[in-house]
């Protein structure tokens, strides 16, 4: 059996899109970790961090959503771009709900905040997987 490596990688992401996705995902992960820290310690500053990280995530994710929408034009469309866009929009809406939940005072945000932070991170991660789909498709044969 002969294995050949396909040398051509389809550029799934525009570099700006990749930057925004990475920024958003980091902030979303930060939100989740800060929520976990608050849930474990009751130390109030953690949920303040979480609230601000989530707002940052919303800003980056909104810009990334614009990129994802631009990726839907026929000339740029890839196998996963529609699913990526849909899931990314879902993640953004969940993050917006998460912002409203984080606006509640003290423990009133819990456990909903933690649940939403997990969901946002998970949906965002899956969404990025779909954006990267063509890379896999063109990988090792």
């Amino acid at each position: 059996m002969v294995a050949t490596v396909e040398g051509r990688y389809a550029p799934a992401f525009h570099p700006v899109h990749a930057l925004l996705l990475g920024g958003a995902l980091s902030l979303i992960l930060g939100t989740l970790l800060a929520d976990i820290a608050y849930a474990r310690t009751y130390e109030i500053q953690w949920i303040n961090f979480a609230a601000w990280l989530n707002v940052g995530g919303l800003v980056f994710a909104a810009a990334a959503l614009v990129c994802a929408l631009l990726g839907l034009v026929p000339s740029r469309r890839t196998r996963g771009s529609a699913l990526h866009c849909l899931l990314w929009a879902v993640a953004w809406i969940l993050a917006l709900l998460n912002a409203l939940v984080h606006a509640r005072d003290a423990w009133a945000a819990m456990p909903m905040a933690l649940v939403l932070s997990v969901l946002v991170f998970a949906v965002a991660l899956v969404s990025i997987f779909f954006a990267a789909w063509p890379l896999r498709a063109g990988g090792v044969r």
């Binding site: 899931l87 879902v90 809406i93 969940l94 709900l97 409203l100 969901l119 949906v123």
Partner: peptide, 16 residues
């Protein structure tokens, strides 16, 4: 995915 939509719909109801 359907489940996620359901969650989103449920949350939207809470907002309203």
């Amino acid at each position: 995915m359907n489940r996620l939509k359901l969650v989103a719909a449920a949350c939207a109801t809470v907002v309203l």
